[in-house]
Amino acid sequence: MLFPMPPSDTLYQALLDRDPAYDGQVWVCVASTGIFCRLTCPARKPLRANCSFHDSVAACLAAGFRPCKRCHPLAPMAAGEPVIQQLLAALDQDPARRWGEPDLVALGLDPSTVRRVFKRQFGMTFLEMARHRRLREGFTTLASGGPVIAAQLEAGFESASAFRAAFARLLGRAPGSLRQDALLRADWIATPLGDMLSVCDARHLHLLEFMDRKALPAELARLAKAAGGEIGLGRFDPSDQIRAELARFFAGSSARFDTPLALHGTPFTRQVWQALRAIPPGQTRSYGALAQDLGRPQAVRAVAQANGANQIALVIPCHRVIGADGALTGYGGGLWRKQRLLEIERGYRSPPPGLAPDRPQA
């Protein structure tokens, strides 16, 4: 088990409330139907006497239960929404398309429903996501030495001012201010859970964040100030190393990250980050347990603040910290990502002696 299971009565109430806090952590098996579901399943709620709870999909399958066809417990949480699957596929097919609400209506979709579903799952609307995808094309052009006007056209912006404003909202700085000879260089990395931005110098990784994180512009500004230099575009050796390690992580071959890190924080904050790195893949800790491990049992709030200040996602695995009751709690990259990361890392758990390790679910 990744965490002590809360009492069954607590989990049953979460099932009644469709509480998303336990997604990716607990599933319910319903004896009367022979199926298992997420606690957020929209189906009619079963009687308490017919419910049992398990901490893994494998346990539900081993008990003889079939996956629910309404909440899709074998799929990542975000993929359970048909409208998300439809629009993400359309975005992949034509990333340069300039999407608007009329395009959604033409597909037979209600823009307000699309906005609500994407905001709930990703923390941004579909139209914002489409703009991010277009900006990636412009970023790539700039990083390869292309002029701003070429990047603007590659990103599908007719207006130079609109391109500059969109770029500044995303990265906190205008495209023309990002030099290729800067001591800190940013690289755009596509992953199965969304685009990420790495910032490295010639020897260390300073930042790794999901591009849609609201705090990213402020983090970049603090980093530039702390490092005493501007941030430009391009790659160093650590940029290539973290890109390769992320590819292996998402491919299911390795959860090991050896890229050298530059840690910007107080001594206590860095101590918390080191404790996070000591949590094995496939396991979790509560804030209280981390405080105990550090010999500071009264410093739970300070541990939580240090966890939230982490700006090197995945490598410093703040996603492995959950609530004392097993709830996922907050995550800057979104709870849906936290749930999916924990699902992936179940495949990296150390098995009991004599058993083969689990493999990450597709």
Rank of each mutant, 00 (worst) to 15 (best):
Q13W: 00
D23E: 06
V26I: 08
V28R: 04
C29D: 10
G34H: 10
R38A: 12
R44W: 04
L47R: 14
A59M: 10
L61I: 02
G64L: 09
F65K: 06
R66Y: 03
R66S: 09
K69D: 15
K69F: 01
A75S: 05
Q85A: 07
A89V: 01
R97D: 08
W99K: 11
D103I: 03
S112Q: 11
V117G: 01
R120Q: 08
Q121D: 13
T125F: 08
T125E: 14
A130R: 06
R133W: 00
R136C: 04
E137S: 15
T140L: 15
T140C: 10
G146D: 00
A150D: 13
E154M: 00
F163I: 11
A165K: 02
A166C: 13
F167A: 02
L170T: 11
G172K: 07
L178V: 10
Q180I: 07
Q180E: 04
R185W: 11
A186D: 04
A190W: 07
A190K: 14
P192D: 09
G194Q: 03
L197G: 07
C200H: 12
D201A: 01
R203F: 05
D212M: 09
D212S: 10
A215N: 09
R222N: 11
R235C: 10
Q241P: 02
R256Y: 01
V272E: 02
W273G: 05
A275I: 09
I279H: 14
L294V: 12
A299K: 13
A309Y: 06
N310C: 08
N310E: 03
N310F: 10
A313Q: 09
R320H: 08
G330V: 12
G330L: 12
K338R: 01
L341H: 02
P352C: 00
Q361R: 09
